[in-house]
Amino acid sequence: MELNFEQIREILPHRSPFLLIDRVTDLVPGESAEAVKCVSGNEPFFQGHFPEKAVMPGVLILEALAQTGAVAILSLPENEGKLAFFGGVKNCRFRRQVVPGDVLNLRCYLTRMRGSVGFGEVEATVDGETAVTGEISFAIGEV
């Protein structure tokens, strides 16, 4: 299943400039999601990170990965209208810089749920080259 920008906005509460995924290219509710972020030189964070050499902050790549995972878990009917709160990051590795013009491919595979707490494996790539890998945790909560 694919989702366009407006459909993503129906699931996630994030709005510009903090909605960091443009399109969901594959979605299996409750299991996995793949998304795309087209990195533009006009992103507000590039004004300060870094003025002489624009590099997407690693924490924002992690946030984009978390938003991808949030789409996977919040697309389940029982989670409609709820929020997914970032719980933690483990084994995170930054392997490549992400710069303006890159198309960031984001993947999150949900590995387990324990009550309202979930875990997922994440990976971000650019042109088939790994940019970030790690594991995330999150908690499902009410609005």
Rank of each mutant, 00 (worst) to 15 (best):
R107L: 01
V143C: 15
Q7C: 07
I21C: 08
I73V: 02
L62K: 10
K53C: 14
R93K: 14
V28N: 15
P77C: 07
F5Y: 15
F138I: 00
L110K: 12
K82A: 07
E34M: 09
N42P: 10
P44D: 09
K82N: 01
M113R: 13
V143E: 15
V98G: 08
A124K: 08
V71Y: 11
L19G: 01
N79Y: 02
C108I: 00
D127I: 02
R112M: 07
T25H: 13
P13I: 05
G134E: 03
T25D: 05
A66G: 00
C38E: 13
E142V: 07
R96F: 09
H14K: 04
I61G: 10
V55S: 13
C92S: 12
C92G: 14
A84L: 00
N42F: 07
E52D: 13
Q47F: 13
G41K: 05
L60A: 03
G81N: 00
V98N: 09
T125H: 05
P57Q: 03
S16R: 14
G128V: 01
A70D: 08
G30T: 04
V59A: 10
K53Y: 15
G118P: 11
P17L: 06
R9S: 06
P17Y: 05
T125A: 06
E10H: 11
D127Q: 14
V132W: 00
P13W: 00
P57D: 03
E6P: 15
V99A: 13
V39T: 02
K90Y: 06
F86A: 09
A139K: 14
V89N: 08
I73E: 06
I61L: 11
V99D: 13
Q97R: 12
L20T: 05
N91C: 09
F94R: 14
R112D: 08
L65R: 10
G101I: 10
